[in-house]
């Protein structure tokens, strides 16, 4: 079946817009689309979207993470061997993380990481035939936002589409929550979110807000945040008494 932008697509549908365009324009095919000669097929179920100038992709609901190069993920260290750590990133295979891929790490000065620790890392290699490889430094050897996540936070998993929703530039969620409380979030594209706030109640409140945002429209997020703020205030005053 032929589909156009905004339609619900099923795997095997052909994208009408691209087949009819005769202009010599480079088209970027995002996740969910693949090409066979000059026809473009969808291979995921979802909604076909287009962003300027000519980026087409399928907006789908998904929970299984498939690693992609350059994405930031939250991983759990599961194994320590002589020169690499094995990290579970929720993909089909465990990723490897070299102990040298940390800021300031040398052969003698190893990073202090134990099995069970959380890391926020970037995917350097992600191919379907090879083991994914992580790094915790950028190309200049600086840690920037990557690295080990402290153990006094909380980790939870959610769908990949929710991650995309909260990480969108236009999403007001974080800014709304930041009005009333201090917190820190590391959201990986693999559907794992690590949150940390001043108290346990606050941490739970942030986590609830993020999870509740999945089914809230953009306009409803403001109300959602103020509701959570109120509940939090009530529980805190209850604790004091």
């Amino acid at each position: 079946m032929e589909v156009s932008v905004g339609d619900v697509v099923m795997p095997g549908d052909t994208v009408k817009d691209i087949t009819t365009i005769t202009k010599k324009e480079t088209i970027i095919l995002g996740p969910g689309l693949r090409r066979e000669a000059d026809t473009v097929y969808a291979y995921k179920a979802g909604v076909l979207r287009k962003t300027e100038p000519a980026v087409y992709y399928v907006d789908s609901y998904q929970k299984r993470y498939v690693p992609n190069r350059g994405e930031h993920v939250v991983g759990i260290v599961t194994q320590k061997s002589s020169d690499i750590f094995k990290v579970d990133i929720g993909a089909s295979e465990q990723a490897s993380l070299s102990y040298l891929a940390f800021e300031g790490a040398t052969k003698k000065n190893r990073p202090d990481i134990q099995v069970g620790d959380l890391v926020f890392a970037k995917l350097l290699v992600a191919s379907k035939d090879m083991e994914p490889e992580l790094v915790c430094v950028d190309s200049h050897g600086k840690e920037k936002k990557l690295g080990i996540l402290s153990s006094d936070g909380m980790l939870f998993t959610c769908s990949l589409s929710l991650i995309r929703k909260i990480l969108n530039r236009n999403s007001p969620l974080f800014n709304m929550l930041a009005r009333s409380q201090a917190f820190e979030v590391a959201a990986g594209m693999n559907g794992r979110v690590w949150v940390k706030a001043r108290t346990i109640q606050e941490t739970i409140a942030i986590a609830t807000a993020i999870l509740a945002a999945e089914y809230a429209p953009l306009s409803g997020i403001k109300k959602l945040c103020s509701d959570i703020e109120k509940t939090l205030l009530l529980t805190q005053s209850g604790n004091v008494e």
Binding site: L29, G30, P31, R35, G70
Partner: peptide, 11 residues
């Protein structure tokens, strides 16, 4: 004509 971009980050 086509560039394949497997990540949502760019899209």
């Amino acid at each position: 004509r086509f560039i394949i971009e497997p990540s949502y980050i760019f899209c």
